[in-house]
Write a protein that binds this DNA or RNA. Structure first.
Lengths: 195, 195
DNA sequence: AAAGTATGTAACCTGTCGGTAACAAGCAAA
DNA sequence: TTTGCTTGTTACCGACAGGTTACATACTTT
């Protein structure tokens, strides 16, 4: 880079992180890889971001990695539909975003301050929804949390797995048709539970 | 090793793989690590096993990584209890075995012949059970597969996650109490579904 | 114009990885 | 005893990782 423009350089570096993360995951986003993909000397990575950890933290911060989806207001009489919509959105989000899948995968093998922060935020957001659903539906909160955990947990797992594996319990987790089947099961469950 | 005993050496190497896998996972089981933990020259790893891939394949083969649990025979009138028992066993298995958790984690980031083989076997075993439950209960097979996927998927996810994270949706996934809550939810679900 | 500072690069250092070559020591068969 | 095979070790190789030093080039301020 002959152009002397710090802002642009920082942007290039962050974009390179994005490319690497989406293609190969956070594990592959090392100094040398980021330097070569961005076409910027690695010295500048240290100079402008301090370390790889801080660079990745900045990347996570920039790409607001959490439910920013808008939901319909929950009323006493639409708890069931609201719940279905939440999980539908969760599935869409994960299936659409390679970076998010890579983040969830990384989280399973790593523990650092940035990840801990994301976990706390996720925990708060999720528990807000779970609390609201419990209040509106009259269901025991542990039960609601349990159901929610079964769904988001397996969805997270399957979305990560799908990058290396096409079928799980006969479900085609790589194709829309497989996920429609799973959505039907989730709807079925809610119909049985919220009677 | 001054004792010249090929069998013993091979055993030492495989034991070292086990130690490393349980403590740090398959990703950490490289030639150098195995050599230093086993106290054996790495040359012998190549000589006796060919490559790391083959060594790990042998390790997987030796440690029969799949449901060897015995279940009560399923009858028409105990499908519900049978199902609960299957998932209870699945949870116990994963929670007890660090190596199995590491295998499931490794599976999310890797694709190789050994893993593909394990997946096929798991798929067959799981579908056998799902088919049987569907037949005995009269439930649609996609529905049974879906429910099964929700449970085993989230259990797999949570067991892996628990090594780095204590709480998920207010559930203490590191302690028995958290898992008892989840088991209660699973039982609740089956009670609602198999009416 | 001169001095100082921000931005950039090339080259190098140390450590570790997977992998191999060369050699030493034991054992077994001729 | 000598020949040959198995089992073992040491030392090395090239590739690449993270990280730093030293230096060149441009822009700003006085």
């Amino acid at each position: 880079m002959t152009t002397k423009d710090r802002n642009q350089t920082e942007r290039r570096i962050l974009e390179a992180v994005g490319k690497i993360v989406e293609a190969e995951g956070f594990e592959a986003a090392g100094v040398n890889a980021v330097a070569s993909v961005s076409g910027v000397s690695k010295v500048l990575i240290y100079r402008y971001f301090g370390s790889i950890e801080q660079l990745l933290a900045k990347y996570l911060e920039d790409n607001d990695f959490w439910l920013n989806t808008e939901f319909p207001a929950m009323q006493h009489d639409n708890v069931k539909e609201f719940s279905k919509a939440v999980f539908r959105a969760y599935i869409d989000m994960l299936r659409k975003s390679p970076a998010l899948r890579k983040l969830y995968r990384w989280e399973l093998t790593t523990n650092n301050p940035a990840i801990a922060g994301l976990r706390e935020r996720r925990e708060r957001t999720a528990m807000d929804i779970i609390n609201a659903v419990s209040r509106q539906s009259g269901q025991d909160i542990d039960q609601v949390a349990g159901i929610s955990t079964l769904i988001t947990g397996s969805v997270s797992y399957l979305c990560i797995l799908a990058e290396n594996c096409a079928v799980y319990n006969s479900l085609e987790i790589n194709s829309d048709s497989g996920w429609e089947k799973l959505l039907k099961t989730i709807d079925f469950m809610f119909d049985k539970i919220f009677d």
